[in-house]
Design a protein around this nucleic acid. Structure first.
Lengths: 142, 142
DNA sequence: TTCATTCTGAGAATAAATCTCATTCTCAAT
DNA sequence: ATTGAGAATGAGATTTATTCTCAGAATGAA
């Protein structure tokens, strides 16, 4: 376990908000898996542990986690919103299989550098990268 | 006007489908603007011209246009799905302003090459690129 | 024309995300 | 410890984009 809790608390303090019990639970659930997650996934995971947090609170907490720089919204690949944590993880890009939904994560400093270069040219202040491709994965090609 | 009509007709024929009046209207609306568009945008645009096509038909036709390689879904940046046409346009990546919603389109062969290289390494068959970044544009920084 | 198939519009249905509001919690000041 | 003001929560209603259903209309080959 990293120190996401600390980061989150700091962020909340800076906004005059509180690190409450439900928010802690949601934060931990979000960081419990190293996969991508969605609201329903968090909800189920929390309920399995006999904790009790409403969907509404999850929906309300996610933007805070994004703002705090702890998670980001993933490339859209399905109907509902998906997120991944970015705190303590190198940036990566995604190859998303259209058949089985599998997400392959790949490191690529190069892409990031290019985007940074282009952004500078347009005087654009990048907050978040979104790089990836959809297609058919190894297995599903057969 | 390019020959999107022809491309679409060929695609439909290959699937045993027909290039009907509503489908023509939707195709033309999609290619009438060089901006990104969404379902409601198309619907309004079509109604302004006294034509009559239902939302349901637009929703049904869009996947066909995607399959035909004429349009693609854009990087998610808002609540609803957005599309852009790709037929007759070079690939580009997007810098999306989180404040004003402006989309800056940038050419970058480099990024494409890198993604192709990485995909090959993973034996992944790329169908569609999605490259971009969110942040704050030039104007909104002030 | 006939027949099988495909299309369409209208509105119902679904599902994710947001909002409302009454209640509960939190914490600094007393 | 108590209080009070503001923040947070849960439950369910609401909104909004998208998909589905179905009866009728269009299409095109035989």
């Amino acid at each position: 376990m990293g120190n996401e809790n600390l980061v989150f608390e700091k962020y909340l303090q800076s906004k005059g908000l509180k690190l409450t019990q439900p928010r802690k639970i949601i934060l931990n659930a979000a960081f419990a898996t190293h996969e991508h997650f969605d609201v329903d996934g968090l909800y189920d995971q929390i309920r399995k542990k006999q904790k009790d947090v409403s969907r509404a609170t999850i929906y309300r907490t996610i933007p805070l986690l994004v703002e705090a720089g702890l998670i980001k919204q993933s490339l859209r690949c399905l109907a509902k919103d998906h997120y991944e944590h970015i705190y303590g993880h190198g940036r990566h890009l995604h190859l998303i299989c259209e058949k089985c939904g599998k997400i392959i994560e790949v490191e690529s400093k190069e892409t990031e550098n290019i985007l940074n270069k282009l952004a500078k040219k347009h005087n654009f202040n990048i907050k978040e990268f979104n790089v990836g491709a959809k297609g058919i994965c190894n297995k599903c090609q057969k």
